[in-house]
Amino acid sequence: MNIVTVLDHRPDISDSVTESNRILIPSYTIKSDNSKVNIDAHIRLSKLNLAAKNNSTLSIGKEVLIDSVNAGIAPETIVSAPYKFVGSFKPVTIP
């Protein structure tokens, strides 16, 4: 199993993160097969492309902003994300 974690340990980041001090990532693409993905950083993703299958686990921290989601996840995928994102990760059948 793979695990990918995006962390943000910038020392100048305080508890209150504004739009201006977030790192903007134009496109973030993850193909997950029996893997764990953990995104927990003060970042803004313009577009998150996600394909997850075979008991993958997806965790998105509350400080992550996502403008648009293009997600295809298998029904067994465990998703942990802020409530506003939950509807974006609708299960689909992935061959």
Binding site: M1, N2, I3, V4, T5, V6, L7, D8, H9, R10, N21, I23, L24, I25, P26, S27, Y28, T29, I30, K31, S32, D33, N34, S35, V37, A41, I43, N54, S56
Partner: peptide, 21 residues
Amino acid sequence: VITVNTLNGGYTKALEFDLSK
């Protein structure tokens, strides 16, 4: 186990990971 840390500079291009089995 991959950890992407300290995304510096405030400007980042696209990130792409293929976590295959």
